[in-house]
Design a protein around this nucleic acid. Structure first.
Lengths: 218, 218
DNA sequence: GGGTCGGCTGGGAGATTTTCCCGATCTTGC
DNA sequence: GCAAGATCGGGAAAATCTCCCAGCCGACCC
């Protein structure tokens, strides 16, 4: 049995059952393990490295991104396919930065998952159509998610602002004067055409700059 | 065939396959239709009313909540079970307001879905353990999601603030003076212990006050 | 009826923040 | 060396926020 082995990672048992069914209907693949968290996935991979890891991003506890990093840290050749509901481009980019070889959204037809699996097992990379379209749209239309018009320092400060920190806290954290933070704050609002701080937060969230899942409101 | 008929609504084909497998392994149930959107679910229900509708909340296009309302509008006796990834209490409350009979999170074990189905088909209501715990915690610890300490007008204005509207726009929308909005704004920040508008937005999002999915930044 | 309580609506005034303009410094590339 | 651009911060006027206050209205209870 030259079947390719698969490690399935998702925190929803019912969803895992769906994956498993779909994958095992496909000749040439065999699910050798399941995990319901990123840390469990890491342990499972160390115990028995699968040829392919299929992992969700949003899970309780350690995030899927962190899970990808850890697995890649112990095995640089690991092939990891992200299969998630998030259709935001920023999520996909983060996944690739973390070391994923593929990104398929759950809205995609099952065939997309299968073909991405094939692609990746042959050493390639794969993204689902919706993400590919977003990449194309960004390139063509220049919709660089707005925040791309900002400098690195501005993005950094925007993140802190959107996370709920006060001017004083940010100034303290970055060892700058409050005046500087205020000036950045104004400049960022002007550049992003946000007349309100609330809109700033929305933009930051849309751009994937902040996590917003747990209570990371420091 | 005295089987109870089930209509399955979820925008992810793979996930639907998982549900279907799980449900049909259970004696006494038969999936008679699937739908990948709230509007398709509505049409499917009109065509053939199932004994039980299992529906997700987050779907492209019309939301699951709206789908629930529409189905209940044509058939007040419809039994609807929400099966979703959202574990926030606010989502569950909205679902019940819309007319759902049950709310089970996808993090629950498969048995939770089955027992909720049984419960509902016998005319009862059901929530999964995590939601039940949240309800209990709220009751016991008084963690009324913070925003519950606000008056109705305050909540209304908080929503508008968090959606990104300026003081002037809000005053105009509600036909109030800007001064009144400013006073509410300050009072809300004080009550929620938010020193920053950004934190206000986070609180509003956590409380489920705003949608945040599409660009609903008016 | 009279009374109290709480929510809604806004004024006033001082403190605070925002905004816009400016200059200094430092790196980077040519 | 020099121009360009990012970073850092001052100054001052404009705008906003905060806090205190008061009138109004409906609910509720003697």
């Amino acid at each position: 049995m030259g079947d390719r082995t698969v490690l399935l990672v998702d925190d929803h048992p019912v969803v895992r059952a769906g994956y498993r069914r779909l994958i095992e209907m496909q000749p040439g693949y065999c699910v050798i393990a399941e995990a319901d968290s990123a840390s469990a996935a890491y342990l499972a991979y160390r115990r028995a490295p699968a040829d392919l890891v299929i992992i969700d991003l949003t899970m309780p506890g350690t995030s899927g991104l962190e899970g990808i990093r850890r697995i890649k840290a112990v095995d640089r050749k690991a092939r990891i396919l992200v299969f998630t509901m998030h259709d935001g481009l920023s999520y996909a980019l983060k996944a690739f930065e973390a070391g994923a070889s593929g990104y398929v959204t759950k809205s995609s037809p099952p065939e997309a998952l299968i073909s991405a699996m094939e692609q990746i097992c042959h050493g390639g990379k794969a993204v689902s159509d919706d993400i590919a379209r977003e990449i194309a749209a960004e390139r063509l239309l220049g919709r660089r998610s707005a925040v791309e018009g900002l400098g690195p320092r501005e993005v950094e400060i925007l993140k802190l602002i959107a996370s709920g920190m006060t001017t004083e806290e940010i100034a303290d954290a970055l060892s700058l004067s409050q005046k500087t933070i205020q000036n950045y704050h104004s400049a960022i609002k002007a550049k992003l055409d946000a007349r309100t701080d609330a809109r700033l937060v929305r933009i930051a969230i849309d751009a994937g700059l902040i996590d917003l899942s747990p209570a990371d409101v420091a």
